[in-house]
């Protein structure tokens, strides 16, 4: 359920609680009304025209590192 895609925040309009996000060259205006904080350069999950949450780059990195470490334990 719930299609949401990560897109990079390119510009912000704080007064309108909106942002322009970029997804591989596609630019779309979305609402940032659900977020407390958001900065240019953040990646946010976009669902029905709203940013649901920011993506935590450190946590993403950790998850990816876990995939890489799997190699070490392969027989």
């Amino acid at each position: 359920m719930c299609l949401a895609v990560p897109a990079r925040v390119e510009s912000l309009d704080a007064a309108a609680s909106s942002a322009i996000v970029n997804l591989d060259g596609i630019r779309k205006a979305i609402s940032t009304q659900l977020l407390d904080e958001v900065a240019i350069g953040d990646y946010v999950l976009v669902h029905v025209g709203y940013a649901l949450e920011r993506i935590d780059p450190d946590e993403a990195e950790k998850t990816l590192l876990l995939f890489d470490e799997l190699k070490a334990i392969e027989p």
């Binding site: 591989d24 060259g25 779309k28």
Partner: peptide, 10 residues
């Protein structure tokens, strides 16, 4: 193209 993929994911 990356942009077509992007639009499709969105």
């Amino acid at each position: 193209r990356a942009e077509v993929r992007g639009a499709c994911e969105l």
